[in-house]
Amino acid sequence: MAVDTVEWYDWSELPPARPLRHENRRIYVGSETCARFLPGLEQALDYCQAQIDMGRYLTVVTSWLSDEFLAKAIELIELLSERHQQLEVVCNDWGLLHAANGRFACELVAGRLLAVQRTDPRLAMFGRVALQRTMEKDVPHVEGFTARLKHCAPSSALLAHLRQSPLDCPQTLNLLQTKHVHRFEVSNLLQGLETSPRAGWRVTLHYPDVLIAVARDCRSLSSRKCPGKPDSTCSTPVAHAYDDFPVSLYRDANAWFYANPNVPDNLSEMGIDRLVRKRKLSSRPW
């Protein structure tokens, strides 16, 4: 199976004009975590037209949505699907997927927020038995006693559970198919990834950035007030290192991420035919 590599841009960021190669024909644009990044219709049309003129296909990424932003997203999809024959929309909200199903000439994709993977990088430490055993110690316990804290090696069932996406269950995939969805997206988990490819299904892998957690707005994660509309400081990633985590974390707008650049070597076996990476993070300083 051929694997496309696709770059992901903000609405404020135009991709460079460059020679077309088959694998570069599609670009992603939008935010999966903050609806305030949804563009105005005029801006979106201009952006879309510029990409069509360069022979590119567009995938519009949307976030979780309140009713106010759901209406905006629907309006945007309606407009762009009329202009662009190859439009894809990544839905990160069941409400959008439900409302847009069958209404527009575009392909709907189940995004990473619907895949709800277990994305804490510390999960990768479960199986490091020798390292874990160095931490065994006495801890306070009931009735004034102490107890020996010991490592419990994870079962193969637990490890499989941690690598799978809840979306990747037959019941959910069948439901998605009734809504004409045939592609879902996952993150490149540090603890490893397991998907069970089925006929007719395609999987997109985001790398290296693994989305861990999302807040309603930046105010929930810092003292910074949300400007209402995105500004230049809105999406400037900030890196953090913690002793407890095997990798650095970073905050980008209202969400936390880590990076895992090691792409699995069994992409085809997992049904993965597309790799997506955020362009603005490709030159991260950490």
């Binding site: 999960l123 801890v139 804290l149 010991k150 490592h151 090696a153 994660l221 953090h240 913690y242 407890d244």
Partner: peptide, 19 residues
């Protein structure tokens, strides 16, 4: 002998508190 088991002995708290 009391024993307490954990999958990750490096774990010190939920992500939100670690942050």
């Amino acid at each position: 002998e009391r024993r307490v088991y954990s999958n990750n002995l490096f774990y010190t708290g939920h992500g939100c508190s670690i942050l």
